[in-house]
Amino acid sequence: MSFLADYVHYIGCFALVLIGLYIVLVKTNLVKVIIGINLIDTGVNLFLVSVGYIRMGTAPIFSEDGAAGKQMVDPVPQALVLTAIVIGVSVVALGLSVAIRLYEHYGTLDLRKIRELKW
């Protein structure tokens, strides 16, 4: 049982990554592909946070009543995740605007029909 307790967060986040990857590989609707990319991002962000996790740890914020520093989780992955979230949002926003433009040109979001250039 301890196996599950040790690994459950990793299993969860990589499941998200793999589901997202599956969507990107299989689906042909551009918006669905972007949703897949978003899922991958979410999984990766969860992974980064869980790398810094300590069991029973608290948020790395000191308060005046004085929490013990030893019990705090690693702050660096949290800072990295904040950056990664913003980058993910940027990519998704740009992807959606590309989708809007493609829809204007082709009247469809089906990637099988949008093949003027060779893949």
Partner: peptide
């Protein structure tokens, strides 16, 4: 169209980099 392709492949690439960094 090429921007869409580039973006999809690039986004997956960056996710891989991020997992590696993790």
């Amino acid at each position: 169209e090429s921007s869409a392709k580039y973006l999809i492949q690039g986004a997956i690439g960056s996710s891989l980099v991020l997992i590696g960094i993790g």
